[in-house]
Design a protein around this nucleic acid. Sequence first.
RNA 1: GGGGAGAUACCAAAGUGGCCAACUGGGGCAGACUGUAAAUCUGUUGUCUGAAGACUUCGUAGGUUCGAAUCCUGCUCUCCCCA
Length: 412
Amino acid sequence: MDASYFSTIMRPFPQIDNCLFKMRLIKLTFVTTSQTVMFSIERKDRATSARAGVLRTSHGDIPTPIFMPVGTAATVKGVLHRDLKTEIDAPVILANTYHLYLRPGTDIISSAGGIHRFMSWDRPVLTDSGGYQVFSLAANRKLTEEGAIFRSHIDGSKHLFTPESVIDIQRAIGADIMMAFDECAPWPCDHKYAQKSMELTHRWLDRCVLQVRNTGPLYGADQMMFPIVQGAIYSDLRRISADKCASSEMPGNAIGGLSVGEPAEVMYEMIEVVNEILPDDKPRYLMGVGTPANILEGIARGVDMFDCVMPSRNGRNGMLFTREGIVNIRNRRWATDFSPVDASSASEISRTYSKAYLRHLVISGEMLGAQIATIHNLSFYLSLVREARERILDGTFGIWKEKTVRKISERV
RNA sequence: GGGGAGAUACCAAAGUGGCCAACUGGGGCAGACUGUAAAUCUGUUGUCUGAAGACUUCGUAGGUUCGAAUCCUGCUCUCCCCA
C-alpha cells in the first residue's frame, strides 16, 4: 500500500470533524513514500505537444491541462466556494504565501489546522511563494543572498523572506503544492541581470529543496514543491534553468518570469525551449498566464497547469471572455441587450443574467456585477481547459485549437 | 408687500476685465489590466478638423472697453428671511 492508494481511499474526507485524525494517521504511516507516482499522462496529442493527464494530491485529483483560479488572500475575490465547485468546477485554487503570511498570519492558519480547514475548501490548494511579490513590489524591497527584505503593503513593517522561511510558511499554510522561492526578473531585462537573477534563484532553489527534505507536512496531507525556471527571454539561460530545475527531481516544474510584458511570440518560444528539457512525465506549470489564447498555445506546447488573475480581476473591471470573443460589458452597445451573458455557458449564472443587467451592475459599481462577471469568466476558463482535455483525449486538439484561438481573441 | 442672495457646460460647483473653451468633483463615453498593494487605474467629454487653427458659449436684451463669464442698465426666472 502506498500513499497514493491511501489518499484515494481516504478521499474525499466526508466530515471536517474527523479529517484531522485521518490526516494524522496518513502522516504517521505513509508520509515518506517519495517514489509515488503523482502524475500520470493519459494521452499525448499527435499534432502538438499537448498532453492530458491527472495530478494526484491528498485533497483530490487534478485533471490536466488545468486552469487554477487565483485566490490570493484565501479567497477568489467575490466567489463563494459553493460556486467555485458548481458553477466554475475548479479542482484546485491558488493562494499566496506573502499575503497570508502578512494577514491573517501563519499562527492563525496553523491554529485553524491549515488553509483547507481555515477557508473551508477541501480541494487542492497551490501557494505561490511570494517570489512574484518580490518582483511586483520592487520599490519596497531589497534582494540579498540570504533572501528578500521587503516592507508590508499593509502597515509598512519590515520583513525578511528566505528560501527556508518561505517553505516553513507554506508548510504552516498546508498547501498541496508549494512553490520554490524565486526572483521574477522584469522585462525588459538585459542578459547580465537575467543571468545573475537566475543564478540567485537557483541557489535559493537548492535551499528550498533542502528545507523541503528536512521538514514534513504539519497536517498529514502530502505536500509537493515545484521549482521555477527563470532566465527571462534568453534561450541559453532558459535551458540552463530548465536543467537545474529538472535535476532537483521535484514532482513537478514551473515556468516563471514570462508574460511580464514581452511579446506573446517570445513567451511561446521560451516555453518551447524549456519544455524540451523539463521531464515529460511530470506536470509543467506556466505561472501567471494568461489570456484564453495564451493558455491554448501553452497547452499545445506541453504545459499542463496555468493560473492568472485575468479572469477575476478583468471580470471585476467589466471584461468578459466568451466563445464569441472578448466583451467590454461597460460599452453602450450592451445597454439594451437582454440576451444572456453567455447562453451556451456551463454556468447557470452566465445563462441566467442578461448582458444589459450585468452592464448596469458593473457600471453602477454594484458588487453583484463583479461577482457575476468573475464567475462567468472563471467558468469560461475552466470550460476551455476541460474542452482542451477532451480534444486531446479524442485526438482533435490541434485543429480545434487553431479555430478556437482565433475566435476567442477577437473583440466583440 | 418689504429685504436679501443668485442664475456658469449633462449635473454640482470654482472663476469677478486679458494667463478662460472656462479649476474641481460627479455623470457619460472609451481604453488598460497576465504567479492580485486593483470592486483599480488612464484618457476623453462645446462645434468643425488629422493637426495647427477657426468658430460659437457662462439666464436674456442692450451698453462701457482695444478686450467681458467677469463692469453698467433693463427684463425674465430661482432661492432665503420678514410681514
